[in-house]
Every structure is written in C-alpha cells, then in structure tokens.
C-alpha cells in the first residue's frame, strides 16, 4: 500500500539551535500518528514543517495526491500547496480563535471552505453547515451566532467542523484538547475518535498529553531535543517503553 504521507530526513534549525533533526516516517491511510514530548522537544516545529507553515532546511514531505500521485509538498508551488490546504488537508489549532474567523457566524465559518472550493448555493451551504454543527454536537439554533458567544469547548468543536466539512484526507492537530477543562476534554476526545473512525481519516496529533494519544493514536513517536527517540505502536510504547526518556515520560503521568 502507498503511504498517504512519507517523510524523509526532515530537519529544521533556528540558528545554532536544532528545531527538529532528520525525522522520517510513513503514515498510511486511516492511520493516526501521535507525536509526544515535552515543550521544546521539537514536536510543534515538526508539525508546522509538515503542514507547510514553516520552511524546513532539509528533507522531503511526500503526499499521495488525488490527481498526480506522490508529490513532494515542499517543492510544490504556493497555489498548489494552498489548494491542498483547503481541500485534502486540515489543520486544527490548539487555540480555536487561531483557526476560526471570530467575526463570522458559525455557519459562515463552516461554509467558508465549501465556498473556497466553489460551492455557490446558499441553501446547500447552510444545510451542510447545520449538518456539521450537529455532528460536532452544536445545536442548529446557534448557526447564526458568532464564535465569540461560544464556550471554549464549543469553539474547538466548531473549528473541527470547519476543518472536516470538505472531507479532507489528512488532519494535523496541534494540542487539540489543550486549554480545555478535563470534562470538556473527554467529550472532545470521544467526538474526535468517532469522527476519525467514521470518516477513515488519517491524522497527525501533537500533544504533551499521553491520555490523548492513548485514545486517538495507533502509532506513537516520542521526541526529545529535536530527535525521535522512540517510535512504535501506541500501546507497546506506553506499556513497555524502551528509551529512558520515554520511561520517564510514562511514569510521570497517571495511567489512563
């Protein structure tokens, strides 16, 4: 099977400091990869390089495009990359307000990606928006309200709906449950797990929270000082960590 995403030797430096070094992995369709590590480990740098938000210094990010098969995203033209960014790819920010238009209604937020790829029927766009609000457990009556009137958990669910409405194949998530109350986190994780399973999504989830990867990720990469120190099936890595750093990481949190 062709990997959906194939990463080779990805490296990013900030002057003398290493952001992430020589990272390689494959992600197959329907697979969820977790990337864990403490802050400063390079996991966010890696995610931003993968998603095209940061230019890496070396490496390849090969995506299996619908039209032309495997293409190196880093050598694509900006229009191609942006088109990918609003069709096959999605990015869920840690802070919902970075991923939402706070001055636009919930319906408009969800509808934007549809309109960006050519949807021109108001009724259909609105129906899709309402359908997606339902799927992320937001009441239809809130469709014309702005996200500023939503709670933190609702904003995050709205961001997810806005990202998934065009049926992307690859979702990048940066600490999707960060900054939310524990009870809200649990509900969001449940929802995400259901969506990933039902839509057969592939996803890369960056988090410092092992509970998140335990629930969502099939495979796990552990990062420290810019390098991947351990890589394997999630349960294997968490239940039988090999690297000393992973052992420390696992022992420092409550088991879930």
């Amino acid at each position: 099977m062709t990997p959906l995403l194939s990463v080779h030797g990805l490296t990013k430096r900030y002057g003398a400091h290493l952001g992430c070094g020589d990272v390689s992995f494959d992600l197959f369709p329907g697979e969820v990869l977790g990337i864990v590590g403490e802050s400063g480990s390079g996991k966010s740098t890696l995610l931003n390089c993968l998603a095209g938000h940061l230019p890496p210094d070396a490496g390849q990010v090969i995506f299996d495009t619908r039209a032309d098969g495997q293409r190196d995203v880093l050598t694509m033209s900006e229009p191609e990359r942006r088109m990918l960014g609003r069709t096959d790819w999605a990015f869920v920010h840690q802070h919902a307000r970075d991923g939402l238009r706070m001055g636009v209604s919930a319906g408009g937020n969800v509808g934007e990606r549809l309109m960006a790829v050519g949807a021109r029927n108001y009724g259909d766009i609105r129906d899709s928006a309402i359908d997606w609000l339902g799927r992320v457990e937001i009441s239809e009556t809130r469709v014309d309200d702005r996200p500023t009137t939503f709670s933190g958990g609702m904003q995050q669910r709205l961001q997810i709906a806005r990202n998934l409405v065009t049926g992307p194949r690859l979702v990048f998530m940066d600490e999707p449950t960060g900054g939310l109350d524990v009870s809200v986190q649990a509900r969001l994780l449940d929802l995400l797990r259901g969506l990933v399973r039902d839509m057969g999504l592939s996803a890369i989830v960056v988090t410092h929270d092992l509970a998140v990867v335990r629930l969502l990720a099939h495979r796990l990469m552990v990062m420290k000082d810019g390098h991947v120190v351990e890589h394997g099936l999630t349960d294997q890595v968490l239940d039988d960590p090999q690297h000393a750093y992973t052992q420390l990481l696992v022992s420092s949190v409550l088991q879930v």
Partner: peptide, 16 residues
C-alpha cells in the same frame, strides 16, 4: 492565488 472564498463568506453572512 484566486482565493475568493472570503468574498462569498461576506455575502453568506449578509443573507444569514
């Protein structure tokens, strides 16, 4: 880049 989705968002908001 012919990214005009935002223009329609404005019209959508008007109608909504």
């Amino acid at each position: 880049l012919e990214e005009y989705g935002l223009m329609h968002v404005k019209l959508y908001e008007d109608i909504a």
